[in-house]
Simulated assay, not measured.
Amino acid sequence: MVVVWMKDMKNGAASAGIVKDHDNGTYTGILRTLWTGRAAMKAAVITSKERIDFTYDILRKGYQGKSINCIFRSTRAVETTNGYMDINNMKTDNLCNFTSQYHGVPFYCGKPKGEGLRCVDWTQVSCRLKKMTLSSNEQWFYESRASENLPDVINITIGHVEGDTASASRPCYLQDPRNTWRATPPVGFSYQHTWRPLSCFSNIKTTNSYHHCLANRTLRLYGDSTDGCKPQTTQFGMWGPVYENILKQEFVGINNRVVYLDFWDMTVALESTANHPSSQIVKTMLDMFFGYVCKTELN
């Protein structure tokens, strides 16, 4: 997987491009000019086919990132059994299926054997990181760098862009949700260290505007990193485009009522290399998210 982006240090600007894979070992990167100035065009290999194959192989062998324990409790007994996200990894047919309680995500626990304990007595999940069992060669490959910036950097001068930068004139809360699913990259860019979406602008930036927006509202947050027993490992970021395709297929029937926020461009342009983006990037994501929900900003 190859990504391209360009960066203008003087203007605090950056944007991501799109990459076309020609399936013969060559790629074409396309970058849209969104501001006036100078920029350095960069490229990086995020992961290789060999690393993706390696990742799938260790998953097929049953590795799931974390060891999951299911705790069952009654007034008379407590018992712990193993938990799994994939039923094929279960070593017993005596199981409790908690998929419905887990918001539709497959999740299974071994059925408790203690007297009087049943599946309905499931009360808690605990997790711990699970070390992979690898050969010396596999361990070397796993610990090697997953991504690498290409050494060549192309410096360019960007001529006239109307108004010096591309900009949106419509607030995000007026945006048709269906447009968020149809948008093509780039969906935004950074300028003067501020993220600027191309289709709309967020009107939420201050603490007061957040308080005003969330007053008398119920907010529910679901996500893999906020859920203690979702498996995570360090080198699986290349699944982003895969999940994107799955989401777009699953939400086809209701995409007129659901907003899809694509932050891939943001993390590439802002050179986010950690497993999780920085607090500043997360704040920018939240500002964008609430821009679709909240109508006004208080001064």
Rank of each mutant, 00 (worst) to 15 (best):
P277W: 03
V78E: 15
L298R: 03
T75W: 15
P186R: 05
N255A: 06
N149Q: 10
H211I: 06
S199L: 13
G163P: 05
A43S: 15
T123P: 02
R257A: 14
G37V: 02
D262R: 14
F251R: 02
T133V: 13
G17K: 04
D53R: 15
N275K: 07
E297V: 02
R178K: 13
I204D: 11
G110H: 01
T26C: 05
L261A: 04
N69R: 14
N275W: 02
Y260F: 00
Y142V: 15
N179C: 01
E50L: 02
S135V: 03
D121L: 12
T123S: 08
F201W: 12
A13K: 08
G237E: 05
A269R: 05
W181M: 06
T233S: 07
K130A: 09
V259W: 13
S167W: 03
V268R: 00
L270H: 07
T123L: 14
P277E: 03
I87T: 01
I158V: 03
Y84V: 08
V45M: 05
D287N: 14
K130S: 07
S225V: 01
W181Q: 06
G223F: 10
A43D: 10
N82I: 06
T284H: 06
Q249L: 09
E162R: 15
Y63P: 06
I87L: 07
K10L: 08
Q280F: 08
R76H: 11
L221S: 07
K49Q: 15
S15A: 15
F72M: 00
V252E: 11
Q280D: 08
N179R: 13
F72I: 00
W239V: 11
N256E: 13
G163E: 06
R118E: 15
S144T: 02
F290P: 11
G291V: 00
R73H: 09
N82D: 14
W181S: 00
H211D: 06
T184S: 04
N82L: 10
G17L: 04
R145T: 10
